[in-house]
């Protein structure tokens, strides 16, 4: 049984101009100790999925249809009380702005102790403090620094403390939404290495959300590429990055500049921008920007095509 599973999940936001379908018909599953990366550009719905998993959708957002299961239990329609219990204890989150979420007037260690005791009241303060020390060494922070205040930390250290806090209640899955976006390259590399190592050592599943393909490639074994609210391609890291099938995935990979190209010529730009998600579309959502689009792509919605047991793409079958 999958640890975390979404089936035909659709999430919408009520707006003044109508229902904005931020996520549409998305299915995925994450195994115990596995890692799944969502990659896509802004507005593709990746963050919405993370928020739905944490039960943190804004007031105007709701799950329109589909199921979201954690250990077989449907999270859709679950009571706030139960969700609060799951949160942190079983599903933890590291997000971009988390660095600034630390309370500036409380010692970092005390904040983690408080979080532990809130979710596990049976743990004594001394035990919790002991756990904080071991968590700090796990994420390569000096345990002595747990007595410091957040402003005495650098950005990278704060993010490490946030990871320690996320791990504090030994969750089964961590949702990491752009955890390194605000960090510099060198610190980012360290934090990613940390997440990879922690994942292995604690055997925790990671659902990683990022706009940066390279970052996702570093952390995740499975990748889901999202575009305009849909997953358009899904597979293992190697399948998606080495034999990308969807034109969007290919364009996304093309657009990624690396320092390893021998002859550095700017790639051709993908034309256009992400479509409006309020106006329903008949055919493929990538139609406007796709270099291979034809009449069928505009008329009929694309279907899932399996390329291997793990690799599938939302596109069109052979043309007659």
């Amino acid at each position: 049984m999958a640890l975390l599973e979404a089936e035909h999940l659709s999430i919408g936001y009520r707006t003044r101009n109508g229902l904005l379908r931020a996520v549409e018909d998305v299915s995925f599953s994450l195994e115990l100790g596995g890692s799944l990366g969502f990659v896509g550009e802004s507005g593709c719905g990746k963050t919405t999925i993370g928020m739905a998993l944490m039960g943190l959708l804004p007031a105007n957002g709701s799950i329109v249809s589909g199921a979201l299961r954690f250990k077989g239990q449907n999270l859709v329609g679950i009571s706030d009380e139960r969700l609060r219990k799951l949160r942190w204890k079983e599903i933890a989150m590291i997000f971009q702005a988390a660095m600034n979420a630390l309370n500036p007037i409380q010692r970092v260690g005390d904040q983690i102790v408080e979080a532990i005791r809130l979710h596990e009241p049976e743990v004594s303060a001394a035990q919790a403090a002991e756990r904080v020390r071991s968590l700090f060494s796990l994420v390569d922070l000096d345990p002595e620094r747990s007595r410091d205040y957040p402003h005495q930390y650098s950005g990278g250290m704060k993010q490490r403390a946030i990871i320690a806090m996320a791990l504090a209640c030994r969750p089964d899955v961590i949702i990491a939404d752009e955890p390194t976006t605000a960090l510099d390259v060198i610190v980012q590399a360290q934090i990613l290495a940390e997440i990879r190592r922690v994942q292995k050592e604690m055997d925790v599943a990671v659902l990683f959300i990022s706009h940066d393909i390279a970052v996702v490639a570093e952390v995740c074994r499975h990748i889901a590429v999202m575009y305009a609210g849909q997953i358009v391609e899904q597979g293992t890291r190697e399948e998606v990055f080495e034999t990308p099938a969807h034109p969007y995935t290919q364009a996304l990979l093309d657009a990624y500049l690396t320092i390893e190209e021998e002859d550095a010529a700017l790639p051709q730009a993908m034309k256009g921008e992400t479509p409006n998600l309020i106006v329903p579309q008949k055919g493929c959502r990538f139609y406007d920007r796709c270099p291979h689009a034809d009449a069928q792509c505009r008329q009929e919605p694309p279907t899932w095509i399996s390329l291997s047991p793990t690799h599938k793409v939302l596109c069109y079958g052979p043309r007659s």
Binding site: Q188, P247, T258, I259, I305
Partner: peptide, 22 residues
């Protein structure tokens, strides 16, 4: 520290769902 991520341009698009069969 740059993310290690080598583009495999030569293999790119070996499968083209919009052209050949699957």
């Amino acid at each position: 520290s740059q993310p290690r991520f080598r583009k495999k341009t030569e293999q790119r698009g070996s499968f083209r769902p919009w052209e050949n069969g699957a």
